[in-house]
């Protein structure tokens, strides 16, 4: 199989148990395949194991059992060094808390991922500016990250996630810290990126956010329930 036809994510019977005490089975026998260019959302109540799931997908955490192939590469067989490299080069992270370096400029923040690829500084800067252009933040490139609005910060964070040309964009509550109007512009941006061929996986509480994906999966007590094009009904939320 070539890289183009290989699924981005292929989970086979993946489990993650936190050795307590008390031991917590945060993920149990999860099977999931995400094809290249797919847009998947993950929903679930609090404490259901969404963040655990995302950490496993992002190679920040190792599953206690099962197989996880990213771009066809088995993360379990890799050394920490190679897992770090795979994470840095193939995965873009977007966090609820943005995690920008607030005392540095927007462009410096976007230049950060390529610091670890050994790319010359000038080239890094050029690519970072290109990426800021793409997320509509070129005009604030030299602004201090700490002085940007929430929506602007998240767009800079998305530019940072994209600059290494990842196979997969992993978003953990990307609109959790934004008001609904700002959230809409960020979701709009993610939609655009997806339409340009990027594989996206979004973890969210918000059914409105989840609905934008081609497919939504739901986690409950560490177990995955697949719901094709369906919106899960949370009791506290309207349709």
């Amino acid at each position: 199989m070539t890289l183009a036809t290989e699924p981005v994510i292929n989970l086979q019977q993946v489990a993650r148990t936190y050795t307590g005490p008390p031991a917590v089975k945060a993920l149990a026998n999860v099977n999931l395949t995400v094809s290249r260019g797919e847009y998947v959302s993950v929903v679930g109540p609090s404490g259901s194991g969404k963040s655990t799931f995302l950490n496993v997908l992002g190679l920040l955490d190792r599953p206690t059992s099962g197989r996880y192939l990213l771009d066809g590469i088995d993360g379990a067989e890799l050394s920490e060094r190679d897992r770090t490299a795979l994470r840095g080069r193939r995965i873009g992270f977007v966090f609820q808390a943005f995690h920008l370096l607030s005392h540095r400029t927007a462009v410096e923040n976007v230049m950060l991922p390529q610091l670890y690829t050994g790319m010359p500084r000038k080239k890094r800067r050029r690519q970072a500016l290109d990426m800021l252009e793409r997320v509509g933040m070129a005009h604030r490139a030299e602004g201090q990250a700490g002085q940007l609005s929430g929506g602007e910060r998240q767009r800079v964070a998305i530019a940072r996630a994209l600059v290494n040309g990842p196979s997969l964009l992993l978003c953990d509550e990307p609109t959790g810290n934004l008001d609904s109007e700002t959230a809409a512009t960020v979701l709009q941006l993610i939609d655009e990126l997806h339409s340009q061929g990027l594989s996206v996986l979004v973890v969210t509480h918000d059914s409105g956010v989840a609905r934008r994906a081609q497919r939504t999966v739901m986690i409950k007590d560490g177990k995955l329930e697949v719901q094709l094009h369906a919106v899960p009904a949370f009791p506290e939320e309207g349709p």
Binding site: F93, H99, P113, Y116, T117, N164
Partner: peptide, 16 residues
């Protein structure tokens, strides 16, 4: 700590 986690997620190794 947040910055450290971020850098790790971007490909920084512990020695970096």
């Amino acid at each position: 700590v947040g910055e450290i986690g971020l850098r790790r997620s971007l490909g920084a190794r512990p020695r970096h």
